[in-house]
Design a protein around this nucleic acid. Structure first.
Lengths: 136, 136
DNA sequence: TACAACTGTAATAAATAACATTACAATATG
DNA sequence: CATATTGTAATGTTATTTATTACAGTTGTA
């Protein structure tokens, strides 16, 4: 992960869980996260595509959780925002004429994948409900 | 991790392992990785500080592994290049007047740390020797 | 000793990625 | 019909990453 998207998504989901069905506007959430509302709306696109939230347009519109917080696991949030591989950026363009350079991407990918699986497994043990209930 | 440093470091270490004690120049390694030699030298500073490699200045100089490849575990390489937390960037500055914003960094940090521990544990099972011997 | 091949490191530039902002159409409420 | 909101595109700004240039210091060797 190379940006704050996991934190932003989890922040949004936590706010919505706390809101208990009440609709929250992207402006309100942006104020809590302290980022631009447009970024929140962009992140909501993703969360909607995953079926985590629903949004309502128009006046008094906003977003709400589309499923119970104990049915949303943190690995689902992770994979929803995941872009690059965990341990490395996408751009890796080694020399194909070097015996090591030629093969390293393949071996790095294998390593990254197996490592990421362990991380996903760990995150799958925790739900949004678990995370949210820590807040006093 | 937010850049290619893990891949670069592991690439360097793999080249040195294959070199079998022979000194490799930063220019040569940069050619295999396909990056600028200065970046290799910067990465070598870090690898030297960790005791993984040694370098020799002057003509016919270069770098070599300072310890056996089976004594270098991949979690050591990971922690050597690690900068930010695994799942998020450092900049996260939520609204302290929001009940969620006020506490979220603390809970995110706890989550990140425990998740990263699992990742480190997984990487600790593999050594540079294991990684290197995959190359044909 | 002089030269060549290196490392070490600082300074700067270029490229890329992340994030913010502006703008406005579309939608819903009252 | 006015207002508050989402949805989204386009553009600008900032931060981060990577590359480049430059050169002093070190070492081997002719």
């Amino acid at each position: 992960m190379n940006n704050a998207r996991f934190a932003i998504s989890l922040h949004i989901l936590t706010l919505l869980e706390k809101a208990n069905g009440e609709l929250l506007s992207s402006d309100y959430m942006a104020g809590s996260i302290n980022i631009n509302p447009v970024l929140v709306r962009k992140e909501l696109i993703n969360l909607r595509n995953q079926g985590f939230v629903e949004s309502k347009e128009g006046k008094n519109g906003g977003s709400f959780l589309a499923k119970p917080a104990n049915k949303i696991t943190l690995d689902q949030v992770y994979t929803a925002v995941r872009q690059n591989n965990l341990l490395g950026s996408s751009k890796n363009d080694p020399n194909p004429h070097c015996p090591v350079g030629k093969q390293i991407n393949q071996h790095l990918t294998t390593l990254y994948n197996s490592t990421e699986q362990v991380l996903i497994q760990e995150l799958s043990k925790k739900t949004l409900a678990d995370f949210s209930k820590q807040f006093s």
